[in-house]
Nucleic acid binder design. Structure first.
Length: 494
RNA sequence: GGCGGCGUACCCAAGUGGCUAAGGGAGAGGUCUGCAAAACCUCGAUGCAGCGGUUCGAAUCCGCUCGCCGCCUCCA
């Protein structure tokens, strides 16, 4: 299995530090606002990485944090006239609301920065003792900064030279720092700000130190995978490395994994540009699974252009998938009750191709996922199987052997569906849920009674009436499909 | 200015040295159907931004050019 490591810029063979055990830490979100689709991407990507590692048999411990104290949270609280911790709690709740819908599982540990103040203070004290950090008085309290030039390897992750950082467009001029590239480990509290007691008086932690403290506490001093969005490479992860390795003297993480951005009109989606969509805005128009498939249809490191067309494509793909499952279910239930002799007219032609795809499927799926979690390729294989299964069903197969092949197909869909956490509804549920996301004002039973009305018309060969009902439903977004033993409905995509 | 990435059909997107360049969507024609829908079949890049080079062989490696983007400041 290979993973692209930002540290080396190469795909590397994945071997965990301790055999069969994997510790993953992914930087979560700062809880001061609703999550946008970019946050969703990161969450979904690491969710799948974690699921796949488990599928491969690793004992995975996954930690994802919440940054629940920070300038933006304080500002937000002041704007809203509420307490900073109420703001944090509110957006943690909203985070779960969104991520639950996207099928992002809870991490094994979801630590909050404010629950680790003691651990952070310990690390900072040690860094001062070892000469990596220095105190600066600010009124009656003190701040603590990390002295970047004391850590010779600074810049190794983001490939930046200290000299160039110093020469480049300037960071905020801050007289308190010895060097402009130094960063805060502990911030002296200003009037009206939340604070904690510390050896430096009243203050609060800097951003980066929380991850060092929480990684060490929950996963140990060296972990296997550390990840987050590509925008965290610098300065966040670079700073984490400096602090952590200065503190422990050990490599902080073996593999650094970063997901690419979501773009709009080719530009990075971001708060400052204002070109972002929140997860809930999109969920108002599309089913959550559509968003998840949209995200996983590209490799996690590639940029993804966000657009309605893209979401629509993902929706069409899911529609194709669930239509196929409906056919499969239909076939399996009929195969039970009918006793057409095997290899009746037509036989099981096409069974050879389907069988061959089925035989190779597991290997191909794992090969794709083993190659730096290539979900796009894996999904390609899934739709190849969809096509073969449909083709086989078109050949009017019968008998136990045919049933077994179709059953195998369905089992495979379920297995890979668990890894990607996609494809896990029934076709009926998919359509019922689509009524909601497409805002169709018909209930299931209303549709069923129209179908019954039409069935009678058809029985009487009243084609005009039958077609009128079909048309009426289609105008409301419902498509009818006539089959041998009845009519089924589904929501129109487009 | 420094560092990094990307450019594959109408759209999206795999493929990173060697069998016919996956898969999805859109489009055209066909089979099936009372009519439809779905599904299936056929058609669709002699070519992978452009130019040059390495090689028996390149979308894939190297060089240059063009275009787009990211990081260097909070950011998933």
């Amino acid at each position: 299995m290979k993973i692209f490591n930002t540290m080396t810029g190469k795909k590397e063979d994945f071997t965990p530090i301790i055999r069969d055990k994997v510790g993953i830490y992914a930087c979560g979100v700062t809880v001061y606002d609703y999550c946008h689709i970019g946050h969703a991407r990161s969450a979904v990507v690491f969710d799948v990485i974690r699921r796949y590692l488990k599928y491969k048999g690793f004992d995975v411990r996954y930690v994802r944090n919440f940054t629940d104290i920070d300038d933006k949270i304080i500002r937000r609280a002041n704007e809203e006239g509420s307490a900073w911790d109420a703001v944090a709690q509110k957006y943690i709740d909203e985070y779960y609301t969104d991520m639950d819908r996207l099928g992002v599982a809870r991490a094994d540990v979801e630590p909050k920065a404010t629950e680790h103040i003691k651990e952070m203070i310990e690390v900072i004290k040690t860094l001062i003792d070892r000469g990596y950090a220095y105190e600066v008085a600010e009124g009656e309290n003190k701040s603590v900064y990390f002295s970047v030039d004391k850590f010779a390897e600074y810049g190794k992750l983001s490939k930046k030279e200290q000299k160039e950082l110093l020469a480049g467009a300037r960071v905020d001029v801050d007289e308190r720092k010895k060097s402009p590239v130094d960063f805060a480990l502990w911030k002296a509290s200003k009037e009206g700000e939340p604070w904690w007691d510390s050896p430096w008086g009243k203050g609060r932690p800097g951003w980066h130190i929380e991850c060092t403290a929480m990684v060490i506490k929950h996963l140990g001093e060296s972990i296997d995978i550390h990840g987050g969005g590509a925008d965290l490479i610098f300065p966040h992860h670079e700073n984490e490395i400096a602090q952590s390795e200065a503190y422990t003297g050990k490599p902080f993480a073996k593999y650094w994994v970063h997901n690419g951005f979501i773009t709009i009109d080719k530009e990075k989606m971001s708060k400052s540009l204002g070109n972002f969509f929140t997860i809930r805005e999109i969920l108002d128009k599309y089913d959550a699974e559509v968003i998840r498939l949209f995200i996983l249809s590209s490799h996690y490191r590639s940029p993804i252009e966000f657009s309605n067309e893209q979401l629509h494509d993902a929706e069409s793909s899911l529609e194709r998938y669930y239509s196929t499952i409906a056919r499969i279910d239909d076939f399996l239930s009929h195969a039970l009750e009918t006793t057409i002799p095997p290899l009746a007219k037509g036989g099981n032609k096409g069974g050879v191709e389907l069988e061959s795809i089925l035989d190779k499927f597991k290997d191909r799926f794992e090969e794709a996922m083993d190659d730096d979690f290539n979900t796009a390729l894996a999904i390609g294989h899934i739709f190849e199987l969809v096509r073969e299964a449909n083709k086989f069903l078109d050949s009017k197969p019968s008998g136990e052997a045919a049933k077994a092949l179709i059953k195998r197909s369905k089992d495979i869909f379920e297995t890979v569906g668990e890894v990607l956490n996609l494809f896990n509804r029934t076709p009926a549920q998919w359509n019922i849920d689509l009524l909601k996301s497409k805002k169709i004002s018909l209930t299931e039973s209303e549709i069923e009674s129209k179908i019954e009305e039409r069935r009678i018309a058809r029985q009487n060969k009243d084609w005009a009436k039958a077609d009128a009902i079909r048309k009426e439903l289609e105008e409301k977004g419902i498509i009818l499909e006539d089959k041998k033993d009845g009519t089924s409905w589904k929501v129109k995509i487009s």
